[in-house]
């Protein structure tokens, strides 16, 4: 049994070391604002097509409506997810996953781990899968999903996706009741820092920004721009982009997907500003999903996504 981790960052490092040792490429966070680790192209796009893939990474994620000005012990508008995607899903993925819990100091003889039905669906990504939420002593610590469809495409082979809600998991392992009190680095470091030292102020600022200050007309405009740009980039007429060396068209699946990600985050901000009615909400989600589908269609034509 490994000794107990002492800080948030140690848990994060141990997860990376563990999944690295299992043969995953340890990637870095995607450099755009996303709602969840799934949005990283290393998951969304790489789950498509026949090529094998194994990657793990931390992804800072933003859910503007979850902001609580840094006061709620469990809710944040900016938080971290740890994400693992392996394609095809290996037969021992559950065991590998349990190994990762051991690696961060959870003793399976003392703690009650359960796989409780939870079918995952992302309406904005046109994606769904079957799996579980994993419970540790009654608390959800991960999402475990076998992807069936992404961007409207059947996944063949199927990827196994693991998502850990890092703050919650770490608070549990470290025995902390309020996220802001969690040691970020080692508590005996010369300059010990808590999660709150690093994020309390940003949570306050962003909560205020997301709910009250973000300029609605600008957000709406940027949403329209991102949507149009995504479609334009993928349109062979509007964006022929012929590679001079091969005389073939360069399909810009990734740049287009960046625009899809941006549209999704802008929608989330608009939602937090409270300017989207329930009926409009569905329409916006459908618009983002249409972009995700186009990007998926494009990706499967590219080298990374195509057959053979």
């Amino acid at each position: 049994m490994p000794d107990q981790p002492r800080s948030f960052q140690e848990i994060l490092l141990r997860l990376s070391a563990y999944w690295g040792a299992q043969g995953c490429a340890i990637l870095q966070p995607y450099d755009l604002e996303v709602g969840a680790g799934t949005f990283h192209p290393a998951t969304t796009l790489r789950a498509l097509g026949p090529k094998a893939w194994a990657a793990a990474y931390v992804q800072p994620s933003r859910r503007p409506t979850d902001g609580r000005y840094g006061e709620n012990p469990n809710r944040l508008q900016h938080y971290y997810q740890y994400q693992v995607l392996i394609k095809p899903s290996p037969p021992n993925l559950q065991d590998l996953y349990l190994g990762s819990l051991r690696a961060i100091g959870i003793d399976m003889a003392l703690h009650d781990i359960r796989f409780v039905e939870d079918d995952w669906e992302s309406p904005t990504l046109g994606a769904w899968g079957l799996g579980w939420e994993v419970w540790c002593d009654g608390m959800e610590v991960s999402q475990f999903t076998y992807f069936q469809q992404v961007g409207g495409h059947d996944c063949r082979p199927v990827s196994g996706e693991l998502t850990y809600g890092l703050e919650r998991l770490a608070m549990y392992v470290l025995g902390i009741d309020h996220v802001m009190e969690m040691p970020f680095n080692d508590p005996s470091a010369p300059i010990p820092l808590t999660y709150g030292d690093i994020f309390r102020q940003t949570e306050e600022e962003y909560s205020r920004h997301n709910f009250d200050a973000a300029e609605v007309s600008m957000l709406l405009r940027h949403f329209e721009d991102a949507e149009a740009e995504c479609a334009r980039l993928l349109d062979p007429e509007l964006n022929p982009a012929i590679d001079p060396k091969t005389a073939k068209r360069i399909v810009m699946a990734h740049p287009a997907y960046d625009q899809c990600i941006k549209a999704s985050h802008l929608f989330n901000l608009l939602d937090a500003r409270g300017v989207i009615s329930p009926t409009e909400r569905q329409a916006y989600i459908a618009r983002v999903r249409a972009l995700a589908k186009k990007c998926a269609d494009a990706f499967v034509q590219t080298e990374a996504g195509a057959a053979a």
Binding site: P88, S89, P90, P91, G129, L130, G131, Y146, Q148, C155, R156, P157, V158, G160
Partner: peptide, 14 residues
């Protein structure tokens, strides 16, 4: 039901 890994068999979970 679902598929898993490289296969095409369907079951509720692998």
């Amino acid at each position: 039901s679902m598929r898993w890994g490289p296969g095409s068999l369907r079951w509720v979970r692998p």
